[in-house]
Amino acid sequence: MTTSRLAPVATTPPLEPELAAALARALQQVNNVVLGKNPQVRLAFACFLAGGHLLIEDLPGVGKTTLAHALAATLDLSFQRVQFTSDLLPSDIIGVSVYERERAAFKFHPGPLFAQLVLADEINRATPKTQSALLEAMQEQQVTVDGITHGLPSPFFVVATQNPLDLAGTYPLPDSQLDRFMLRISLDYPDRDAERALLAAADRREVIGHLQPCLDNAQILAVRAAAAQVLASPALIDYVQALLAASRSHADIRVGLSPRAGLALLNAARACAVLAGRSYCVPEDVQQVFAGVAAHRLIPGSASNRTRDQLAAALLTQVAVRQAIA
C-alpha cells in the first residue's frame, strides 16, 4: 500500500456534537417506527430541514400517516390532521371569525392549519378552492381572514398525501400547484423483512404514543440555520445547472425544471449534507434528492411513454458530475 504524505483537507462539521447526536437519534427513532423506509424518511427530514413541504403520493395503508405522526412526535411539533373531502371549505382549515356578543367583536377561531405539522390527507379530494387556500398558506406561512393577517406557527410543515389511483371524483393538483411541494416521495410496499417486523410488532399507534421528542423547537431552528449555511461550491452549482439545463433540453420533456425547482434542489441537497454531517454539498446529495425534487415538476412530452420518475432517473444518468472531465 502506498504511504501517502497527503494531508487531509480540513472541514468543520455543520452542527455542534450534541445537536448532531440529537438529529441522528431523531432520524433513528422515525426509522424504528416506519420500518424499512430509510431513504424516504431521510428525504422527509431533508424536506423539513430545508423548510419545504412534503407530498406523499401513494396507496392507502402503506404508512403515510404513521410517518407524519412519528415526525411530529419526534420533532416535538404540534400536530393536526385534516381529512380532505369534496365538501371541505377553505374556512374549515383556516378558521373562522365568529361574532362574540359579550365583547361586541369578531373573534378569530383558528382552524386545523394552525399547527406546526399539518397532515393534509388525500388532498386531491378537496375542491380546487380549498386546495388553493392550503397552498397559499403553505407558501406565505400566514393566512389572512377578514383583512387581518394571522401568522402560522413556526416551524410550519405540511405533509400532504395523494392517492394516485382512485381518481373518480377527485381534483388532481395542477402542475403549477405541485411546484409548491419541495419534495414528493412515495412509500411503496415495505420489503419482506420490514413487513414481517411490522406484522409481528406492537400497534404503530401505540409505539408513536410512547415516542420521546428528540429535538426542541430551538434546536430545529438551529439545524435549519445550519442547513442554510451549507456550502454549495461552484462545482456543485455547475452540476445543478447542468441538470436543470438537461431537463429543459430533453426530447421527452415538454416543460423542464424552473429556477424555483433548482433552488429547491439545492436547498434539499444542503439539508441532505447536514444529515450526512457535512458542511458542504457533494453531487451525491443532489443525486439523492433529485428524483424527489424533480419528478413531480417534470411535464413529459405528449409523445413520451415514460413516467416522470423514469425521466428524472434518465436525467441523472445523462448529466456528468463534472462537465470538464466527462
Partner: peptide, 15 residues
C-alpha cells in the same frame, strides 16, 4: 484519503 481530499478541494471550498 485521495477521495476525501478531492471532495475537500472541489466541494468543501478549500480550492
Amino acid at each position: 484519503r485521495l477521495f476525501a481530499n478531492y471532495v475537500g478541494l472541489r466541494y468543501a471550498g478549500a480550492l
